[in-house]
Design a protein around this nucleic acid. Structure first.
Length: 286
DNA sequence: TTTGTGCCTTAGCT
DNA sequence: AAGCTAAGGCACA
């Protein structure tokens, strides 16, 4: 085993890994186990930072520090948030919540699978997809681990094989995206080099990718910090926290989301999302 | 132009 | 037990 301690403070590991940005983390024992690219990784919060373990022979850990974003100046980001009561409450509820930097294809495919699914169900679908069609990872752990299937691997499958992974109506969209990316007709890497609005429009050319999923990829994979995915939870949060008196229209909410939260709106969004979800579960039924 | 509706699957909950 | 809903997108009225 290779091991390292990443020196970072104010990092809410549990909140970050379990906040619905990534779907391949579990907590089998005291720490977290997940799969990043072709590696199984075990993480645990320790006083000095985050302790990480993975296969033998790893000396360059930049793939992990990039994924965990341990080098970002969180305090500086928090200062860009609007100074209003809801935002302060959301930050106070889970200080140290972070955004991850994920692989674009895995992120895109995962959020294409997320529509009208609960997070537990999204995990199930992705686990099934990886077990059946991803590369086996060389790891002594039990159960065996599998990488997320590449575009080429999925492109070679049939729609029925994907539906068998419980994708339902999402299957043809994932298949089409995989095939367009595999042939090179759609260049996912190029999207990250475009300006924000153009990158968003480009992603939305994929069938099954609307504004919300595009924003997730922009934020979680490409690091467009201003991208602000508006999902059902965020709609609820904005409505209750910022427009408590009367119902705000869809257009109003979208405009507010895009303009009120500043240069790092994506981070603000993650705090609001986590705040809403944990508040609900803590209360039982709200 | 904006807004509402039904449909696309599946599974867990009530 | 049938109905509802879940990190949506899309066509259509």
């Amino acid at each position: 085993m290779s091991e390292i301690i990443l020196p970072v403070q104010n990092y809410d590991l549990a909140g970050t890994l379990d906040s619905g940005q990534a779907f391949r983390w579990s907590r089998p024992g005291p720490g977290w186990t997940g799969i990043i690219g072709g590696r199984v990784v075990r993480l645990a919060a320790v006083a000095a930072g985050i302790r990480a373990e993975t296969v033998d022979g790893v000396t360059d850990w930049s793939w992990l520090t990039t994924y965990l974003q341990t080098d970002v100046d969180l305090a500086a980001i928090l200062q860009t948030f609007p100074k209003d009561a809801p935002m302060q409450a959301a930050v106070a509820a889970s200080p140290g919540l972070r955004l991850l930097r994920q692989d674009p294809w895995e992120c895109l495919a995962s959020f294409m699978l997320s529509s009208t699914k609960q997070i537990v169900q999204i995990r199930q679908i992705i686990a099934l997809l990886c077990e059946r069609h991803g590369a086996r990872i060389d790891d002594p752990g039990d159960p065996p681990a599998f990488a997320f299937p590449t575009p080429a691997q999925i492109a070679g499958l049939s729609e029925d094989q994907l539906r068998a992974c419980k994708m339902g109506f999402r299957a043809p969209n994932v298949l089409a995206a995989a095939r367009r990316i595999d042939t090179g007709e759609f260049d996912l890497a190029r999207v990250s080099t475009l300006p924000h609005a153009e990158a968003r429009a480009e992603l939305m050319k994929l069938a099954g990718v609307g504004g919300k999923i595009a924003d997730c990829v922009l934020l979680f994979a490409f690091g467009f910090n201003a991208a602000f995915p508006v999902d059902v939870w965020i709609k609820k949060a904005l409505q209750e926290l910022y427009f408590p008196r009367r119902r705000a229209s869809e257009k109003r909410l979208q405009h507010f989301a895009a303009t009120h939260f500043g240069s790092h709106g994506g981070y603000a969004q993650q705090y609001l999302f986590h705040y809403m979800r944990t508040k609900k579960t803590a209360r039982g039924r709200g």
